[in-house]
Amino acid sequence: QKTCLICGDEASGCHYGALTCGSCKVFFKRAAEGKQKYLCASRNDCTIDKFRRKNCPSCRLRKCYEAGMTLGARKL
């Protein structure tokens, strides 16, 4: 079983350049394409896991970029 690099849930494949679950794939697409700016209410070090991935979109998006996700990457 492969694990999502963002939240640790079961990965569905390589999306936008990183091994992710469906939830993180859709989140990244919407967040990266959108005009909304996300700000962390804490210290930009929130725990992003399967159960808390929706708590801080700022840290989740940062983790996506750190994992190498880009909109230009093709699905592998």
Rank of each mutant, 00 (worst) to 15 (best):
6 I>G: 02
38 Y>F: 09
56 C>I: 01
23 S>N: 08
29 K>F: 14
18 A>I: 15
27 F>H: 01
14 C>K: 06
50 K>E: 08
41 A>D: 14
71 L>N: 08
9 D>S: 10
27 F>D: 03
48 I>H: 03
38 Y>V: 09
45 D>L: 06
71 L>F: 15
74 R>V: 10
21 C>D: 00
5 L>R: 08
50 K>N: 15
45 D>G: 07
29 K>D: 05
71 L>G: 08
73 A>L: 06
29 K>P: 04
37 K>S: 09
21 C>F: 00
7 C>W: 01
18 A>S: 07
7 C>T: 01
65 Y>A: 07
45 D>Q: 15
64 C>W: 00
74 R>D: 11
25 K>I: 05
71 L>H: 07
3 T>H: 05
16 Y>L: 04
30 R>C: 11
57 P>V: 12
72 G>N: 08
40 C>A: 01
48 I>E: 04
36 Q>H: 13
44 N>W: 04
39 L>F: 11
14 C>Y: 12
33 E>D: 10
31 A>P: 03
5 L>F: 09
48 I>Q: 06
26 V>H: 14
17 G>A: 03
57 P>L: 10
24 C>D: 02
74 R>L: 06
71 L>P: 07
15 H>D: 06
36 Q>W: 05
15 H>V: 06
25 K>W: 09
63 K>Q: 09
71 L>Q: 11
24 C>V: 00
5 L>C: 10
65 Y>N: 10
33 E>A: 08
46 C>Y: 00
65 Y>H: 09
5 L>V: 07
22 G>H: 07
38 Y>L: 11
35 K>L: 08
15 H>L: 05
50 K>M: 06
31 A>I: 03
18 A>Q: 05
13 G>P: 08
30 R>Y: 06
55 N>D: 14
1 Q>A: 07
64 C>L: 02
36 Q>I: 06
5 L>P: 04
64 C>Y: 04
30 R>G: 11
7 C>D: 00
57 P>I: 07
52 R>M: 10
40 C>V: 02
24 C>L: 01
25 K>V: 11
73 A>M: 06
47 T>A: 13
52 R>D: 14
19 L>C: 06
1 Q>D: 15
30 R>I: 10
49 D>V: 03
74 R>E: 15
36 Q>S: 09
14 C>S: 08
72 G>H: 11
21 C>T: 01
64 C>T: 02
45 D>I: 10
45 D>A: 09
31 A>V: 08
16 Y>I: 01
30 R>W: 08
44 N>P: 03
40 C>Q: 03
73 A>R: 13
23 S>R: 05
7 C>A: 03
46 C>V: 00
32 A>M: 12
20 T>L: 07
39 L>P: 09
45 D>E: 12
52 R>K: 12
71 L>E: 08
25 K>H: 13
46 C>L: 01
50 K>L: 12
58 S>I: 02
70 T>I: 04
24 C>M: 00
4 C>F: 00
74 R>H: 12
16 Y>Q: 03
1 Q>L: 12
17 G>Q: 04
21 C>A: 02
22 G>E: 15
15 H>C: 12
73 A>V: 11
23 S>E: 12
73 A>N: 11
30 R>D: 10
18 A>E: 02
26 V>C: 13
55 N>Y: 10
63 K>S: 05
19 L>G: 03
47 T>D: 12
48 I>S: 05
12 S>N: 15
20 T>R: 01
3 T>K: 05
38 Y>M: 12
58 S>R: 09
22 G>W: 12
13 G>V: 10
24 C>H: 01
35 K>A: 09
65 Y>S: 06
72 G>A: 13
41 A>W: 06
9 D>E: 06
33 E>Q: 14
21 C>I: 01
25 K>P: 04
47 T>V: 13
65 Y>P: 00
72 G>S: 09
3 T>N: 14
58 S>P: 13
30 R>Q: 12
56 C>H: 01
72 G>P: 09
14 C>I: 15
49 D>C: 03
19 L>E: 14
38 Y>G: 05
52 R>W: 04
18 A>F: 02
24 C>W: 00
30 R>V: 10
9 D>C: 11
5 L>M: 05
50 K>P: 13
12 S>K: 11
45 D>K: 15
13 G>M: 07
30 R>S: 12
12 S>R: 10
17 G>E: 05
17 G>L: 02
27 F>S: 00
36 Q>F: 07
46 C>T: 02
27 F>G: 01
23 S>V: 02
31 A>Y: 15
39 L>W: 10
65 Y>K: 06
45 D>N: 13
16 Y>T: 03
52 R>V: 14
48 I>R: 04
32 A>I: 13
65 Y>V: 14
9 D>V: 06
44 N>Q: 11
1 Q>P: 03
16 Y>K: 03
23 S>P: 14
41 A>L: 11
3 T>D: 06
52 R>H: 10
72 G>V: 10
26 V>L: 13
38 Y>N: 05
31 A>H: 08
49 D>A: 04
71 L>I: 12
16 Y>G: 03
55 N>I: 10
34 G>D: 04
12 S>T: 07
49 D>F: 02
30 R>E: 14
63 K>I: 07
48 I>Y: 06
64 C>S: 01
22 G>F: 04
24 C>A: 00
71 L>M: 15
8 G>V: 01
16 Y>V: 02
8 G>L: 07
73 A>C: 04
52 R>S: 09
36 Q>D: 14
50 K>Q: 10
22 G>Q: 12
48 I>N: 06
6 I>V: 05
47 T>F: 09
65 Y>M: 09
27 F>E: 02
74 R>M: 11
52 R>G: 13
32 A>D: 13
50 K>W: 05
30 R>N: 14
32 A>F: 06
19 L>D: 11
7 C>S: 02
35 K>P: 15
64 C>A: 04
30 R>F: 14
26 V>F: 08
73 A>Y: 07
